[in-house]
């Protein structure tokens, strides 16, 4: 089995493992953020570039460093590979650049966005972004459109991660949902605003890392942090029926798939992804429709997680230590030319 070292932590992983997967096996702060990769969707990843890492040594056989940062989600490890993520200031600066690009045309309309509080871009901006924008030009604008009667698309918020395109390609039949136009003018759309007519189309909402695709049946009902996530199931003829209810008291405001610590849909016992059907998601909004299992365990570092502020505090402490040149938990901090801005350095 190939052995790879990520931020000075060695791990042996099965042949064919990507750097990102290897980092997730180690866990903790050294895991690169991934905005477009989604382990449950074939050919995902490689687009957003937030997961870039520096490969200091290619392999045991060929120890040369890789000339450019690589997308950790699409680069498989080689035996003897040495990777730097948070222990390379250069890499953190490059990532801060990517985050700036992702936010460049983003409307920053969190106050009116249903995704706020569970948005990967919010988390990313909080962890890696700068305080202020350097973009003084008008931002790109699109009109919101309906993808069928249950899904709303706010293209302004889209980061073109292609996850929904892969869902449409791999979970639903027919190729009617994709990217129109090119470059900066690219937009997600269905062909002539047609609904994706399929039982599993609602999963595009769950894979969307931002508030571009949202559930119209939940629109403006509540901020997500005022809801209680509860795991529940029902005997569904179409899907696994295992869902997460987002309740206010007895009232079911929203139904989603269950997500794991990486923000991805959890697996069923047989290892297949636990995607849910549109009936479970949009039609079963009564508590009696469900067998309640209990409160959901949410492990993401987001505002919906109870210990969020504690985590933030711990991170700031670690940042301060790093800035002072101390080496918490034996992690080597490589000093580069750039400033160690705590905002770029989480």
């Amino acid at each position: 089995m190939p052995k790879v070292t990520i931020d000075d932590i060695p791990i042996e992983v099965p042949e064919g493992t990507t750097i990102l997967q290897a980092a997730r096996m180690i866990g903790g702060d050294i895991v690169p953020p991934a905005m477009c990769y989604y382990s449950k969707l074939k050919t995902s990843g490689g687009y957003c570039r937030t997961c870039i890492v520096k490969v200091e040594q290619g392999s045991e056989k060929d120890p040369r460093p890789m000339p450019k940062p690589v997308a950790s989600c699409r680069t498989t490890v080689m035996d003897g590979m040495v990777v730097r993520n948070i222990t390379s200031v250069e890499n953190l600066e490059a990532r801060a650049g990517v985050v700036e690009f992702l936010l460049l045309n983003h409307p920053l309309d969190c106050p009116v966005c249903d995704q706020a509080g569970e948005c990967d871009l919010q988390d990313l901006g909080y962890g890696h972004g700068a305080q202020e924008t350097r973009n003084d030009f008008p931002r790109r604008e699109f009109e919101p459109i309906d993808i069928g009667d249950k899904i709303k698309l706010h293209m302004n918020r889209c980061i073109l991660c292609y996850r929904c395109v892969k869902v449409a390609d791999q979970l639903t039949d027919g190729r009617c949902h994709g990217v129109l136009n090119r470059g900066e003018a690219s937009e997600i759309s269905t062909y002539i605003e047609k609904a994706i007519d399929n039982d599993f189309s609602g999963n595009v909402i769950d894979v969307c890392p931002v508030g571009a695709l949202t559930d119209k049946t939940f629109r403006f009902k509540s901020r997500v942090w005022y809801t209680n996530p509860i795991d529940a199931h029902r005997d569904c003829p179409t899907c696994c029926g295992k869902v997460r209810l987002w309740n206010q008291g007895e009232e079911v405001l929203r139904v989603t798939a269950r997500k794991d610590q990486w923000g991805e849909v959890q697996d069923n016992e047989d290892g297949s992804p636990a995607w849910i059907c549109n009936t479970c998601r949009f039609e079963k909004k009564h508590i009696n429709d469900w067998v309640i299992e209990g409160p959901s365990k949410i492990s993401r570092h987001s505002v919906i997680s109870a210990n969020h502020y504690e985590n933030a505090l711990r991170n700031i402490k670690a940042d301060t230590l790093k800035m002072m040149g101390a080496k918490p938990h034996g992690v080597k901090v490589e000093l580069g030319t750039g400033a160690l801005d705590p905002n770029n350095n989480k």
Binding site: G46, Y47, C48, R49, T50, G97, V98, F101, L102, L104, N105, N135, F137, I159, L160, Y162, V179, N181, R182, G183, E184, A185, S186
Partner: peptide
């Protein structure tokens, strides 16, 4: 280059337009 970017990856999609402006 702004006009011809395919728009797949964020640095090129966003950066080329920004530089042009």
């Amino acid at each position: 280059y702004h006009h011809e970017s395919c728009g797949q990856c964020s640095p090129c999609r966003e950066g080329t337009g920004w530089m042009e402006r």
